[in-house]
């Protein structure tokens, strides 16, 4: 099957496109898709860094099964926020 994959932010720039059609075998999981995407776009992320995938607007797990027609997006790290030492019990930082 062929999956339509969207890229955002850092991944969009590194892939050089916003969407890509990625062929994977039937029954593929998020983990399988990530392997296929890395083969197509080896410069997307270093191999030792995990790539987060959203499936139908929810964060996917590596074992999440994919189907043709799923809305699939690769999600670079969001700003996260550094823990403030002064407010350790309720950490955060301004976006």
């Amino acid at each position: 099957m062929e999956l339509s994959v969207r890229f955002f932010a850092l991944y969009r720039e590194r892939a050089g496109c916003s969407t890509a059609q990625v062929p994977v075998p039937e029954g593929s999981t998020v983990a399988d898709l990530v392997v296929a995407v890395r083969e197509l776009y080896p410069r997307l992320a270093p191999p030792d860094v995990s790539i987060v995938v959203a499936v139908n607007e929810e964060y996917g797990e590596p074992e999440t099964l994919l189907q043709a027609g799923d809305e699939i997006c690769l999600i670079p790290p969001v700003s996260g926020g550094q823990a403030s030492q002064a407010l350790n019990s309720c950490s955060g930082s301004e976006r």
Partner: peptide, 28 residues
């Protein structure tokens, strides 16, 4: 605010004199 920064897919890029940088993507 804390939860928003961890779970909401919005990214920030900073532009400097002669450079730019996606925030939080340092490990990439």
């Amino acid at each position: 605010v804390n939860r928003l920064k961890h779970s909401v897919p919005i990214w920030k890029k900073e532009f400097y004199e002669g450079g730019e940088h996606w925030v939080a993507c340092e490990d990439h």
